[in-house]
Amino acid sequence: MSSAEHAPAGPDKRPIRLFRNLWSKIAAIPMILVSVGIFVGGTIWTIVYSFTDSGLLPRLNWVGLEQYERLWSTRRWLVSIENLAVFGIASLILTFALGFLLAALLDRKIRFEDTFRTILLYPFALSFIVTGLVWQWILNPEFGVQSIVRGLGFESFTFDPLYDSSKVMIGLLIAGLWQGTGLIMVILLAGLRGIDEDIWKASRVDGIPAWKTYVVIIIPMLKPVFITALVLVTSGIVKLYDLVVAMTSGGPGISSEVPAKFVYDTLFTRQNLGQGFAASTMMLVTVAIILIPWALLQFRGKKND
């Protein structure tokens, strides 16, 4: 083969970088549009308009922090925030305690593991609407748990959380736990299954009882899994909306209002956009407060490895 065949006809043209692998860049357009256009753009847009007096339609008429001042003096918003805090903390503690207990039980090489796991996880496949409506029915004081216990002879037994503004969050919590614990269980179970078998063997040779191995060795080893699950669950709790709509519609009165519902109602029912944007910005701030330490931790963890 002659070398002339390989000689370039002219000076090699340097390909333009942007057009190299052009298809991959075209294929990335949806991601770019969504990440920059919707996620970044939309967030900035909402934050910007939260400083305006937009009402029925968005308009750039600056009012500074007025919307926020008004928000924090609205009773319904304060109730929403308090409810979210109560629901969030209680459901975090309970889902993690119960989820870990169940995961540990399923991890004990038991029989019918698949059956138990299927039962414990199926509520997670159901929507919050379905979940809310079933529990609304079970907690119905006329026909549900209360009437049955009364029927057993405990005439004064009262359990009507959905009709008692001081207990309504308990009702939501029961339904929320039922729907979400399976998820935590599965995540933690996956974490437990990822633990080196030899660790368990070593602890048996050392004569450490199983419960102590969990507490002293395994749980610390699962810290990253716990933290990730925590972040996921927390950011999910902040979004709590459908369940409330289906179960209580925020009632009795405003006693089970939550921020996500507040935002929706303000934006689309009361058409007070500026106020809605301020409230949703506060939700974003809440998530950021949870997320930023986690992101830093993840980042630092990667550097250490």
Binding site: A28, M31, I32, V34, S35, V36, I38, F39, V40, G41, G42, T43, W45, T46, P58, V231, S235, V238, K239, P259, A260, V263, Y264, L267, L273, G276, F277, A279, S280, T281, M283, L284, V287, L291
Partner: peptide, 21 residues
């Protein structure tokens, strides 16, 4: 970078983006 933004987007409460969308 776009991917990182996309992932962070999963944590943005939907309420923030409802109206822009």
């Amino acid at each position: 970078i776009f991917f990182a933004i996309l992932l962070l987007g999963a944590f943005i409460p939907y309420q923030v983006l409802l109206y822009p969308v």
